[in-house]
Amino acid sequence: MNKKIITANQITKVIVDLCIKANTILRKDVYDSLKSALRSEKNLRAKNLLKLIINNADIARKNKLAICQDTGLPIVFLRIGQNLSLKGDLVNAVQKGVGIGYKKGALRSSIVKDPIKRSTPKNIPAVIHTEIVPGNKINITVMPKGFGSENKTALKMFNPTASLRDIKDFIVKSVLEAGPEACPPFIIGVGIGGTADMAVLLAKKALLKKITPLKTKLSKDILKAVNDTGIGAMGLGGKTTCLGVNIKTYPTHIAGLPVALNISCHALRSASKTI
């Protein structure tokens, strides 16, 4: 079978565009959920703050400005078709794309090379996650993850006999701890299963899923409980603490039940392209 060939150069170009798009154009599902929250919110101050947040997204899009000054630690997800042939250095192509994209978009350099010594920040390296999938295409996603919310990530290794309620209580407690600092209203990513490391990655990947009306009992319970906390936009009250709850699961061990929470601020940013 003839393999499809994709060059390092093609990948770099796509990543340049995705970095700028993700940082300046708010995801449509996030934008729409903010609009719908504005319609249902009763608290006047919360309403005004939601208007500011929507207005901010409009200004960012029009002026090609970063939605948030924390343009994040760029995370690049690569879903690589196993029948695809890559020509050139893939990792180098990705980092080059992020470097050029962040420079071109005047996006912030927020990465210190040495986490202990904390030297002058640069805009690379990005964190890269790869996955091998069927097919002959590559799906590239850039997710600039701000650290106001990333710092509030939580992981708990539950007993396998834990109840849904235990899981919900853990999520709500962690969201309360996150509070105004993680820029509510939030989008909540939950990862359940796998190993400790995988649960955290699942929680992050859950944030890449579109915000849709909730179907499972657990996600509905979490949404209700989080909105009942009354944290509200900017932590100043109201019923809009959470715009969406996305859960991703994976098989796990009989002895455990890993549960991870990865919160996103209201500026949940990502952009994807398949080539």
């Binding site: 500011l52 400005l65 350099s109 927020s110 002058t120």
Partner: peptide, 27 residues
């Protein structure tokens, strides 16, 4: 407190900016 996550909007309220010290720290 300033409106969190509204950096684009707030940039429109800034008329001038210059670095006064610790330039090596970048942003």
């Amino acid at each position: 407190i300033a409106p969190a996550g509204c950096g684009a909007l707030l940039s429109k309220k800034v008329k001038k900016s210059k670095i006064v010290c610790f330039k090596d720290l970048g942003a």
